[in-house]
């Protein structure tokens, strides 16, 4: 019996959430007295697999084939299920990323397993997984258990820590004869390869209508750059065409959990809070002392964003000695 982590990679680079999944699988395996393994799926991924040993995996299964160089639900589901069989895994841990959210339920369906999606808390009691996950946009938390023998869980990125340990993993390449794939990814368009991905960023600076005009966005970008963070946006400014939808935080955008979230000129509508209320430290800058965002902020500054942003950027650069 074992716990199997799906270690997501794209372009032969592991995602940070892959390490989070492996680390958390290791913790669960230790608590449940099971072994821990991981699976890497892709094309020519054998050489990168051993790295997962650093995060606690003692065994890494590799399923590689040129047809797996792009993600596909069907190909990856088959690959993961082969690894589940080989590892005799009873628990599968995935990151709740675009790939993991698509793949996890399909794997669960095939294994006739129950699934818990976008999990933020995991403990073991009486040999059983006790799962916590947000519902209703984080306004309430569900405590749940999975009743089937096989269990699939996807972890909200940035919530569980990736912890490096010392350890080496044995790598085993599985030979899998892949079924034909019906839904084929023909092309992957990456629009922002250099920028820090929002859902995995440690620091996010988000702006709303309080920035007044798209020309002022540069002030926000400079602050994000000074902090080495990613940029987010409220729906109001996405709908107004100031920012692309991929930057939208909230119920109809991305869910983020950074260490630091700075909301500038954002009122704090419930649909925005839905996407960021699990951030560790929240800072609000808003010229209206009654703005709802202050109610959930750890630090608040009442002031004009256009005046405050340049000064804040300057002082942060100074602190960092630049």
């Amino acid at each position: 019996m074992s716990v199997l982590a799906f270690a997501e990679q794209r372009n032969n680079t592991f995602r940070k959430s892959a390490f989070e999944a492996v680390s958390q699988a290791k913790i669960l395996a230790d608590q449940l007295g099971k072994t821990i393994s991981a699976v890497v799926v892709g094309s020519n991924v054998e050489n990168m697999a051993a790295e997962l040993g650093k995060y606690g995996a003692s065994k890494v299964y590799v399923v590689q084939d040129p047809t797996l160089s792009n993600y596909s639900t069907e190909g990856y589901t088959q690959a993961v299920c082969e690894a589940v069989a080989k590892a005799e895994a009873s628990i599968v841990v995935l990151p709740a990323t675009a790939m993991g959210k698509d793949l996890g339920p399909r794997v669960a369906g095939r294994l006739k397993a129950g699934i818990a999606s976008d999990v933020t808390g995991l403990t073991v009691e009486g040999g059983r997984l006790q799962i916590t996950r947000p519902m209703m946009a984080g306004k309430v938390f569900q405590k749940m258990i999975i009743k089937t023998e096989k269990q699939v869980i996807s972890l909200r990125p940035n919530v569980f820590r990736a912890t490096e340990a010392s350890g080496a993993a044995k790598v085993e390449v599985l030979s899998v004869s892949l079924n034909p794939i019906r839904a084929v990814v023909k092309e992957t368009r990456v629009e922002s390869s250099k920028k820090v991905e929002l859902t995995e960023a440690d620091t996010i600076v988000s702006g709303g209508r309080g920035l007044k005009a798209p020309e002022n966005w540069d002030l926000l970008t400079k602050l994000a750059e000074a902090l080495g963070g990613a940029q987010g946006a409220s729906r109001a400014v996405v709908d107004a065409g100031w920012r692309p939808h991929e930057e939208q935080v909230g119920q109809t955008g991305k869910t983020v959990s950074p260490q630091l979230y700075i909301a500038v000129g954002i009122s704090g509508a419930i649909q925005h809070l839905a996407g960021m209320s699990s951030s560790k430290t929240i800072v609000a800058i808003n010229n209206d002392p009654e703005a709802p965002i202050f109610k959930i902020s750890d630090y608040g500054l009442v002031g004009d964003a256009l005046e405050v942003l340049p000064e804040l950027t300057k002082q942060i650069l100074k602190l960092k000695g630049q």
Partner: peptide, 18 residues
């Protein structure tokens, strides 16, 4: 295949510092 064992409100965030 799953069972909800309880619902909990998120812990209130302590009033922030202005």
């Amino acid at each position: 295949k799953v069972e909800t064992v309880g619902l909990e409100l998120p812990p209130p965030r302590a009033a922030g510092k202005m």
